[in-house]
Simulated scan of single mutants.
Amino acid sequence: MDIRGTVELIEDPEKALPRQLSQKYLGEDPPPESDDVLRLIVRVIPERISGFAV
């Protein structure tokens, strides 16, 4: 599958996304990370999607 589009990089200084995903799928908080770790969310706004079916 190929997805082409515009990409947005969004800073996540509170590291909220990993916490939300961990709570949703594991029911617990993720392990703590160092404060110097930079978290970015990559959002793709699709303009063209192509692929093949099996």
Rank of each mutant, 00 (worst) to 15 (best):
D35Y: 00
S34L: 15
A16K: 11
P13G: 04
P46R: 14
V44N: 07
S22T: 07
E11A: 14
L21S: 10
S50F: 04
L40N: 12
Q23M: 15
L26V: 01
K24G: 01
L26R: 09
I41H: 07
L9S: 14
V44S: 07
E47T: 08
L26S: 06
G27A: 00
L26D: 02
P30D: 03
K15L: 02
L9H: 13
L38A: 14
Q23H: 11
K15E: 06
G51D: 01
G51F: 03
S34H: 15
L40K: 15
I49H: 02
F52Y: 07
L38M: 11
V54T: 10
E33W: 14
S22G: 13
R39M: 08
S50H: 05
E8S: 12
Q20T: 11
Y25D: 00
S22C: 14
K24I: 05
P13C: 06
D29M: 05
V37L: 14
T6P: 00
S50V: 04
A53I: 07
I49A: 09
G51W: 00
S34T: 12
A53E: 03
R19S: 02
L21T: 13
G27Q: 02
T6L: 10
L38S: 13
L21F: 13
I45V: 12
I10F: 07
P32H: 15
P18G: 00
I41E: 04
D2K: 08
P13H: 02
Q20P: 01
V7T: 08
V44Y: 05
V37D: 02
R4Y: 13
R19P: 00
Y25I: 00
E11F: 08
P32I: 14
M1N: 05
